[in-house]
């Protein structure tokens, strides 16, 4: 169908296809979790599926495909994996702390209001 895919040996094509399906599947399951899980602190676990397993699968698939097609090692996709590995923990940690801070200050405001009404 696509001309540049035909140059690949079938074994490599199967490997790339398997990696793609695993990566995209894990990302989709993570997104479904983002939609289905009931509380914020549970939902914060869902995108890590896409950023660890999902990104690893798709980036490795791309690396294998371009290495075999070009006949030389193509590793520049590793930069994406490296970048995502570095940035995701930072954003998730900041979001977790922000959520905790907001929940606590809201609970405190609620308690103050209840105390005032009780007086």
């Amino acid at each position: 169908m696509k001309t540049h895919f035909e140059a690949l040996p079938p074994a490599v094509a199967l490997l790339v296809a398997a990696l793609l399906v695993i990566g995209a599947g894990l990302t989709l399951i993570g997104a479904v979790g983002l939609l289905r899980l009931p509380t914020f602190y549970e939902r914060i676990h869902a995108p890590t599926l896409g950023t660890s397993g999902g990104t690893a699968g798709i980036v490795t698939a791309s690396m294998v495909l371009f290495s075999v097609l070009a006949g030389r090692l193509a590793v520049h996709e590793l930069l994406i994996g490296f970048f995502v590995t570095i940035t995701t923990p930072v954003t998730l940690m900041l979001l977790g702390r922000a959520a905790l801070y907001r929940d606590r200050s809201e609970a405190k405001a609620e308690a103050d209001r209840a105390a005032r009404e009780a007086e």
């Binding site: 890590t48 923990p89 998730l92």
Partner: peptide, 10 residues
């Protein structure tokens, strides 16, 4: 944090 299933909150 990178480990699915655990999250470092504070």
């Amino acid at each position: 944090t990178a480990m699915p299933g655990t999250a470092w909150i504070q």
